[in-house]
Design a protein around this nucleic acid. Structure first.
Lengths: 191, 191
DNA sequence: CGAGTGATTGACTTAGATCAATGACCGTGG
DNA sequence: CCACGGTCATTGATCTAAGTCAATCACTCG
């Protein structure tokens, strides 16, 4: 998967592919944001996924002759194509790479299910707790913050205000300790 | 994957496996509910996934020597084990089955991402719209309801009351038409 | 030095969660 | 055959946490 695919720039609003197009392969988002959308018969579009730098999209395209939705750049973006034929051939030739790809998919499924479960949690504070517990480092009590707090908020499905408040409250209660780019769990919350 | 694995009954509260146990393989939930949980160092447990009849869990175990979380029966349950060694051998022997499994995983990733995106929608009504658009049948305007409305509510991450209300409102506005086990989209909502 | 953005906090509003009650169904055991 | 307990479907009343609007301060980047 490290073999550099073909990089391609996209202008904001430009389509990468349409529903029904024959599948070219998997895309990696190098920069910007690309949305997978489907258009209801009434004309309004629903987003299936908003992919950002580092994400891969259209994994399922390997196993389907055509794309099942539209991909459109939400911002100026750069994507890299990993051609379908090449990948399938590689899987055929080298079972190890097939296993690696499977493992990657299985891991994604795991992560996604956990994130989905997280959204079942109503309270902002509990949601944050869930996230922290799920992301503690090896020492079991520190969580590295990658990216801005606003980004974290959207990953958690909260407004940034709500997240700020939850964090301050937890800090005020001595449950956590905030440091730059890092949160340390303090007191094991009773019960 | 159709080869009957070993069925095994679980009593409510019983552990199927623990974090760190050597991986036996993938489990299919035949009946009941099984939760994947992780225990924070503070003692409280967080749920990574609540699997119900028909779901598979621990796909990633195929590629890992030990389980990464606990699995515990939330109700009396029956699970079926698909042994790891057998599946990997089969993948090795028969690339077609490997592809089928990959395709299954890729499809799950797709579905999960769409469901996650759905949870970003705040309004109950828009959430329902998203669901309906995502699940229209071939005719583009009818959605079959499988299971009870309560089940749908929890899939959507809404209380059943909120869902009932959203549905009645939409029906009152002529946006949808409810039939037993079926919803028909009526008017393309303006804008 | 401004413009743009993140971090943070305050005040207010609201949509959805909660609590509660009712009627329709359905299986079951006497 | 019917009374009874359980669950789903549905609707009303109320409460609250999180969203929304808004303002301030600190930074960073040309």
């Amino acid at each position: 998967m490290k073999d550099a695919g073909l990089a391609r720039p996209l202008k904001a609003g430009e389509h990468l592919f349409h529903l029904g197009d024959p599948t070219a392969g998997i895309y990696e988002i190098v920069r910007g944001q690309v949305r997978l959308v489907r258009v209801g018969m009434n004309g309004q579009t629903i987003t299936l996924h908003a992919a950002s730098a580092g994400d891969f999209i259209a994994e399922a395209s390997l196993f389907s002759p055509t794309y099942h939705c539209d991909a459109v750049a939400a911002t100026d973006a750069v994507v890299r194509l990993y051609p379908k034929a090449g990948m399938l051939a590689e899987f055929e030739r080298n079972p190890k790479s097939a296993r690696a790809f499977m493992a990657k998919l299985a891991h994604q499924v795991m992560t996604l299910r956990a994130r989905l479960e997280q959204r079942n949690i109503r309270s902002a504070r509990d949601r944050v707790r869930h996230y922290l517990t799920m992301n503690v480092g090896a020492d079991g009590r520190t969580v590295a913050l990658r990216g801005t707090v606003k980004e974290l908020a959207s990953e958690l499905g909260l407004t940034h205000e709500a997240l700020y408040r939850a964090l301050s409250d937890m800090a005020a209660d001595g449950e956590i300790e905030r440091r730059k780019d890092l949160i340390r769990l303090k007191r094991p919350p009773r019960v």
